[in-house]
Design a protein around this nucleic acid. Structure first.
Lengths: 149, 149
DNA sequence: CTTATATACATGCAAGTGCATCTAATCAGG
DNA sequence: CCTGATTAGATGCACTTGCATGTATATAAG
């Protein structure tokens, strides 16, 4: 039944803890600034990237590894908040196209002003360039799904 | 405002993705086996470690980095499931002492039979010993709170 | 001893999430 | 075309979580 050795267990627990700690810190800073969660940022970033051609929810779902129903409702909230616009999809009557609004762009920028420094504090300030490169390299091997990203 | 450089951003996104991917895989395996979530495992492990002397919820909370109200209700569910026992605390009338039950011990073992191999698959099988050691070392620098753990 | 403050844990309520299922549109065969 | 299978997205329901606050005990200060 292939039990992991202590080196593996150690790497695993460190991964959980480091992630928890870093993420909690970053999310807390956003919240303290009265801003939405990271998931909202991720969505808005993808929407901005897809620009005028828009993006379909199912594509977003794949990119962000979200549950279908979770995304559906996240989009509801974000639309209600005025950060995105849902349009009918010409090609596919079942689908829709998503676009970021001006308000959404503004919010994403405001979030980045908090998010960026928070990342730096949580990661960049604690590691050397070499360490970060090594870290990225190793973590990359844990990501099975080969994303261009 | 100290924006992070691309190396930092890269390390950050890899950390999020690797963690997401690995954790989702592991949790999915537990769920497919009809078992509780990882949080339950963590609690039961701590309860086992604290043995006959028991452990206070607030200590558990600190160890596992859980929200106070979250833990309170998690303990409710676990107690209802028969995995732990709550006893009055002699020293402190506000508090309580937690103990794992036989049923809890059995479940923790059963979970480990899934959890262990899942960790190995998610981490151990993808990295060399040296990489895991390096990973642990680097991630350790991201964990501010100095736990003995 | 009394009063103020802090700590341990619980809980009402609103919001978010997971699961299963639904509707509607597309696609694949005939 | 028509029919069955598949895919995009929404949603009812039960459960979980977050926030604020509540209750009770402990600790500190006078």
């Amino acid at each position: 039944m292939a039990i992991p050795d202590s080196t593996t267990i150690n790497a695993w627990t460190r991964l959980l803890r480091a992630h928890n700690h870093a993420l909690a810190t970053v999310e807390a800073k956003l919240k303290n600034s009265g801003m939405p969660q990271l998931a909202w940022y991720d969505v808005m970033l993808e929407l901005e990237r897809s620009g005028v051609s828009g993006i379909r929810p199912y594509e977003l779902q794949a990119k962000l590894l979200l549950a279908q129903y979770g995304l559906s409702r996240l989009l509801n909230r974000m639309e209600k908040a005025g950060y995105l616009r849902r349009d009918l999809c010409i090609d596919d009557g079942r689908g829709q196209l998503l676009f970021i609004t001006g308000k959404g762009k503004t919010m994403r920028k405001r979030m980045w002003e908090i998010y960026g420094p928070a990342i730096k504090e949580a990661v960049g300030d604690n590691l050397s360039q070499l360490e970060m490169i090594k870290l990225s390299e190793i973590l990359g091997k844990l990501i099975k799904e080969k994303n261009a990203n």
